[in-house]
């Protein structure tokens, strides 16, 4: 019975959490700017609206543009089912750390391919920027996840993130650093401020948006949903790290994990909107410096993991 409930909960999280999180980010930003802002569920309404619209496709594009959407959303959903980004999600067996990395890479590969397909200049430079950023960010994500995997002596993420794992207080810095590294990297990975501005109308400065310019209608709806899902999964992963740090300091009952997992995602969304309100977008050539901070956190986490692992 409880398994069915869990599945239901997970399923609804998968369906509604992405839109809600985006809604929270937008609403908080609006409130911080003294605006009322769109309704909390606007992202969902937009998705539904787009799904009902007809599609305009560039004459120069091929089947790749169309196929990308399907591949993108299906890989993303698979990923969301595999990855333990919510502490209560029913565990599946094949959730290896490297599988996760490769699935993310696959999504990116197809996204880049599809943005090159119509041959527009915007899509091309968006793709080139995305590729540059991912080269910088991927090591940071791998290192952060490896650090926690190393301390748990397994690369199976479900086991790594299982709250039952031994969590002495000395592990708290490791989890904190890994969580911070993941969060900073996901800001870059998700094309959010200060590396990219998701709300900009300036085509020349776009990264992620420039890649989606040629999509419309249901295609666009699915891509938007997929990218929102990617946001919650990545926030969920770094949230799990913070949750562990909390568990090291103050062990809580596993039932509280359900609430905490979701609220940490919301908290990270609020943090994101704070960052996006007060920060100025970085110069493009300075983006690697921001990535370097994420990488530094991950490296330090790894260092701590290595050192504590050696001594314990």
């Amino acid at each position: 019975m409880s398994t069915i409930l869990l599945w239901l909960l997970t399923f609804s999280c998968l369906l509604f959490l992405p839109s809600l999180t985006i809604g929270i980010i937008r609403k908080t930003k609006a409130r911080l700017q003294n605006r009322v802002g769109a309704p909390l569920w606007q992202h969902l309404f937009d998705t539904i609206k787009l799904l009902r619209k007809s599609e305009t496709v560039s004459e120069n594009s091929s089947w790749i543009l169309r196929v990308n959407t399907v591949i993108n959303i299906s890989i993303m959903i698979t990923l969301a089912f595999l990855t333990p980004w919510l502490s209560f999600k029913p565990a599946t067996s094949a959730d290896d750390l490297f599988l996760l990395i490769y699935l993310f890479a696959a999504i990116r590969f197809f996204a880049i391919l599809s943005s090159l397909d119509p041959g527009s200049a915007f899509g091309a430079f968006g793709a080139s920027r995305e590729a540059t950023l991912s080269v910088l960010v991927e090591p940071a994500i791998i290192l952060a996840l490896s650090a926690v995997a190393l301390s748990a002596h397994t690369s199976n993420l479900s086991l790594v993130f299982a709250l039952t794992a031994n969590t002495p207080i000395s592990q708290a810095p490791l989890w904190l650093l890994a969580g911070a590294g993941l969060f900073l990297s996901s800001l870059v990975e998700l094309s959010r401020m200060p590396v990219d501005d998701p709300t900009t109308h300036l085509e020349l400065t776009m990264v992620h948006e420039a890649m989606m310019l040629e999509n419309s209608g249901p295609n666009l709806a699915l891509l938007e949903f997929s990218s929102a899902l990617r946001l919650v999964v990545l926030y969920g992963l770094s949230g799990q790290c913070f949750l562990h740090a909390l568990h090291c300091i103050w062990p809580f009952a596993s039932a509280a994990g359900i609430l905490l997992s979701i609220s940490i995602i919301f908290a990270l969304a609020v943090v994101t909107s704070l960052i996006e309100t007060v920060s100025v977008r970085l110069k493009w050539t300075r983006a690697p410096e921001f990535v370097a901070y994420g990488l530094t956190m991950s490296l330090l986490a790894l260092l701590v993991a290595l050192v504590t692992g050696v001594s314990s």
């Binding site: 002495p168 207080i169 000395s170 810095p173 650093l177 410096e289 370097a292 901070y293 530094t296 330090l300």
Partner: peptide
Amino acid sequence: MLGLAETLATAAAIFGIFMSG
């Protein structure tokens, strides 16, 4: 097991590293 003082010291060193960046 890190004591409080050691944790603080490590944090200081980490902030030093951030400063260098």
